[in-house]
Amino acid sequence: MPEKYILKLYILGSNAASELALKNLREIISHESNTQFDLEVIDVRRHPELAEDARILAVPTLIKKLPKPMRKIIGDLSNKQKVLHSLDLISQG
C-alpha cells in the first residue's frame, strides 16, 4: 500500500494561472489511481494567514506535505512530467 499523499494547493480566487494549476493537478491525480491523495486547496485571498504560515510568496504553489521529503512547486503545473517527477510519482529519466 503506497503512502498517502497530502497536497496543499495555494491559489488566488479566479486567477487564470491558479485555475489552470488546479485543473492540471486534478488531472494528474485522476491518472494516479494507485495513489491516495488528500488535496487541500487554499485561496490566499481568503486565508492570507495560511499563506503566511506556509511562507507562500507566490501562487499557484503546490506543497507536498507527505510523503517526505516535503516539496514546494510553483507554477501552473502544466509541465506534467516535471510535476510527476517533483512529486516522486515517477523517477526522473
Binding site: A58, P60, I73, G75, S86
Partner: peptide, 20 residues
C-alpha cells in the same frame, strides 16, 4: 534560505504567477 518553490510549470512559454 526561504523556500520559494520548485518552478515546474514554465519551460517554453512565459507563464504567470500571482505574488503575494
Amino acid at each position: 534560505g526561504y523556500s520559494f518553490g520548485f518552478p515546474v510549470s514554465a519551460s517554453k512559454t512565459d507563464d504567470t504567477l500571482v505574488i503575494i
